[in-house]
Design a protein around this nucleic acid. Structure first.
Lengths: 210, 210
DNA sequence: CGGCATCCGTGACGATACTG
DNA sequence: CAGTATCGTCACGGATGCCG
């Protein structure tokens, strides 16, 4: 509301909607995890105060990016989810992540890396139904699987391939398409196919700058 | 420097680099206009104080996004330009602009719209050599042309087509691929081809979220 | 307990003025 | 022209309290 750029420009307008601190990380969580309750969201956003999260959610809701929804009585709770418009930030975050990953550096210095990050990454990164293979990922102490184009937590039965390594190796795989730093058991070509379905260089042309 | 998210995540890292207020608008200007001097940059960023611009340029330089360069004696001046890494934000800004444009709304309420915006838009939006046609744009009081895949200021000789309209119509053209709100003289199919070369829906799959 | 609102210290931001 | 200095204000971040 308050601090808009007041430029008639799609980029400035987009930043008016999601350019505040934490906003895009909220979107990241909702993209990766689906609808989340306030507390879960807060728990996943290490370093974000409760008041700021509340403020961001209000701004995002006012901007049509996020929606509040009440779950039916059985487990009555209010959850936050992306609107259709908000969900279309996925390619934007995908490209931004791809860009950022290139200067992210070595595995994990001492930075936060919390539960569910692997599944979240896969959900945001892998385009739905990009691969029909069943691939299990064992990265650090996280386990998630890609089954028939969708992501599930934990291991899976009879995977075509199992990819194991640490977080750094995982990023080498996803960003550089470098299979050599992870260990692959089973059908290596299934992993190659999945990785090949990720854009190595940003393709396609953008649209409007101002 | 100061306020990093301290998450080991490509998105958080990217936002550490370019997530501060004004940063992405600086990149937008440098993408659209090429190397700029401090004053020109400041003039184009309406509402940005000189101190903030200086601070952002320092942060961006430290992050490897922007580079200072001294021009040779004849016109000795220091200019700011994007590094190769910074220039690769183009697809990100392209997608972000595409996303933002969808909720930008009607032409121009009373917001800023300054000199050079048309050429800047074209330079950022149109992928180099996406079109070999020569197309002249007359939008509001701005005139720019697309000549053999590159953008030049002002009119041009013997254009294949001339596109005229206001800013709102221009956005309808670029975002919705709606040719009906602008006036097109000459070879309409050349404009159609150009517009068709812009992604209507975000294509391709993103890469990594966390 | 989940879902915030309030209070408060710190630092980022924004406008203006000023200098090499 | 290219910034630095100063300063008021507001957003951020942490803690805590309140209410269903």
């Amino acid at each position: 509301m308050s601090r808009s750029y007041h430029h008639y420009c799609p980029i400035a307008h987009a930043l008016d909607l999601v350019g505040e601190r934490w906003s895009l990380l909220v979107v990241r969580e909702l993209l990766g995890q689906g609808p989340l309750r306030y507390s879960d969201l807060h728990a996943r956003l290490e370093g974000c105060g409760t008041n700021i999260l509340a403020a961001r959610l209000k701004t995002l809701e006012a901007g049509g990016v996020v929606r509040r929804r009440k779950l039916p009585p059985p487990a009555a709770a209010t959850v936050y989810e992306l609107t259709e418009y908000g969900a279309e930030l996925r390619p934007v975050l995908g490209l931004l992540a791809h860009w950022g990953a290139r200067s992210l550096g070595p595995p994990a210095p001492g930075e936060e890396l919390h539960a569910g990050w692997l599944a979240g990454t896969l959900r945001t990164a892998v385009f739905p139904h990009a691969s029909r293979a069943t691939i299990e990922f064992r990265i650090g102490d996280e386990v998630a699987s890609l089954v028939e184009g969708s992501v599930v937590d934990g291991a899976t039965d009879r995977p075509d391939a199992v990819v194991a390594g640490d977080a750094g190796a995982f990023y080498c795989l996803m960003v550089d398409h470098d299979l050599s730093s992870v260990e692959i058991a089973g059908d290596t070509s299934a992993v190659e196919a999945l990785v090949a379905a990720l854009p190595s260089a940003p393709a396609g042309s953008p649209v409007v700058s101002r």
